[in-house]
């Protein structure tokens, strides 16, 4: 694979009527990096994710994934999305939930990881035969992540992945994401939780006013950015490194 970024957004804008949500946003996401994207409620994080995932065409600008602007079957087999809603079938067991998507992928000619080990990797091995409807929010979140990891995606998009997770859950998530990054996956994390983002991501970008307003520095003293970034950086705790341990 060449050096060009896996995901490239150029001048992406999205508006609903007169409400501009994204205003000409540029973003590069390369293989083997974790990029965090932080923004307040209504900053357009979910809209951006929908555009990247191909659920919504941008009003203007261009979205390129692996050299293609299309979001066909072949492209969708190469990335995965973990939404802030769990998106699992409550009447199916954990393993059945995975099995369904694995079979669907198989029919599309895509490869799958073995199911049970994937569940075990996320600490859900003990609950494999339980219906997802009985799961806690945190367990559902991990199940959704397991489903996303099934196809060893080249790009992994996560929307607010920390919200439902407890402390051990966050550590687990951070470890899994680091492993995926080291394997060569490009990972985009979207959240409003700066502390959690900084502890996991290689770089954290600020989404504000519908554009990438700047990069949140790794250490507060480097804050030669805008006032909003400085403000955020001021609130930032010392950078956690547990993810890379």
């Amino acid at each position: 694979m060449d050096d060009s970024p896996l995901l490239r957004l150029r001048g992406v804008g999205k508006h609903f009527g007169r409400l501009a949500v994204l205003r000409g946003l540029d973003l590069d996401l390369c293989a083997g990096e974790i990029v965090g994207l932080i923004g307040a409620n209504g900053a357009g994080k979910s809209t951006l994710l929908s555009i990247i995932a191909g659920l919504m065409p941008p009003s203007r600008g261009e979205r390129t994934f692996a050299g293609s602007t299309g979001v066909g079957l072949a492209e969708r087999a190469r990335f995965a999305v973990v939404s802030h809603t769990a998106q699992t079938y409550p009447r199916l067991t954990a393993i059945e939930n995975l099995q369904l998507f694995a079979s669907l992928r198989e029919k599309a000619g895509a490869h799958n990881e073995p199911l049970l080990p994937t569940l075990e990797r996320l600490g859900l091995g003990y609950a494999a035969r339980r219906q997802a409807g009985t799961f806690s929010r945190g367990m559902l979140q991990r199940l959704a992540l397991a489903r996303a990891l099934l196809g060893r995606p080249e790009m992994l998009l996560l929307d607010e992945p920390f919200t439902a997770l407890d402390r051990p859950g966050r550590t687990l998530l951070a470890n899994v994401l680091a492993q995926e990054r080291d394997r060569g996956a490009a990972i985009l994390l979207i959240s409003h939780d700066l502390e959690a983002l900084v502890s996991v991501a290689d770089r954290v970008l600020l989404l504000e006013g519908g554009v990438i307003a700047g990069e949140v520095p790794r250490a507060p003293e480097h804050a030669s950015f805008g006032p909003r970034v400085r403000e955020l950086a001021g609130r930032m705790p010392s950078v956690g490194t547990e993810a890379h341990a």
Partner: peptide, 14 residues
């Protein structure tokens, strides 16, 4: 309710 339609729409499913 469970947003599963979105999960199908981003998966490699026709």
């Amino acid at each position: 309710e469970f947003d599963t339609l979105r999960a199908l729409l981003v998966a490699p499913v026709e």
